[in-house]
């Protein structure tokens, strides 16, 4: 048993260490894990196949019963069209509602008037794979599909940080591609 604990400690050390060595920005820089889930039309989606023609993607974990989540998605909706037009942004709202509330996802999305892509993660498989503790948690994927931003929770004003980050990302891309 002691040996097992030792091995385990070693495993954690190596795993923990590697996550910091490879990504000195605290775990960012990874790609999307591969998890099978559905969109609102019932089509099968593999989260790793996510693509937006080299443009950024925002992944936002939410639930119908989570007020800050809905506040965040409503807030971003105000700027979404502008950012779609100017930087080709796509937002994927990943609902972690389970069977109790899953049928309410579509009515909520339509009534709120959201134009986002919506995925149903009804048994929290993607939530687990991305290490999300509680919603809302928001990620940004850059044009190469790398996770470059992650933020837990939402309070008014957090959206400004996200917008700043997205505009910086867009400007850097413009600069890089023009050189």
């Amino acid at each position: 048993m002691k040996k097992i604990s030792l091995l385990l400690a070693l495993a954690i050390g190596v795993i923990g260490g590697s996550s910091f060595i490879n990504t000195d920005d605290g775990g960012l820089g990874k790609t999307m894990p591969s998890v099978m889930l559905e969109n609102l039309d019932g089509d099968q989606i593999n989260s790793a196949d996510l693509d937006n023609d080299g443009n950024p993607i925002v992944i936002s974990f939410w639930a119908t019963w989570c007020k800050p989540c809905r506040l965040e998605l409503n807030t971003i909706m105000d700027e979404y069209e502008t950012m779609q037009d100017s930087m080709g942004l796509k937002l994927i709202a990943v609902s972690i509602d389970d069977e109790r509330n899953k049928s309410k996802v579509r009515p909520v999305v339509d009534a709120e008037g959201w134009d986002y892509d919506v995925w149903l993660d009804s048994n929290s498989d993607l939530k687990r794979a991305m290490g999300v503790n509680y919603p809302p948690q928001t990620f940004v994927l850059n044009g190469e599909g790398k996770i470059v931003y992650s933020h837990v929770g939402f309070v008014p004003g957090d959206e400004e940080d996200l917008y700043d980050f997205l505009w910086d990302l867009h400007e850097n891309k413009e600069t890089t591609s023009s050189h």
């Binding site: 091995l7 495993a11 190596v14 795993i15 590697s18 996550s19 490879n22 894990p33 290490g131």
Partner: peptide, 27 residues
């Protein structure tokens, strides 16, 4: 557990060729 260690060790050496990552969460 040895398998996991091997996997992770591989992952740290195979960054450029194969897609690899370590992720998780703590509460």
């Amino acid at each position: 557990i040895l398998g996991i260690i091997t996997l992770v060790t591989l992952s740290t050496h195979a960054q450029n060729n194969i897609r690899s990552s370590v992720s998780g969460n703590v509460e």
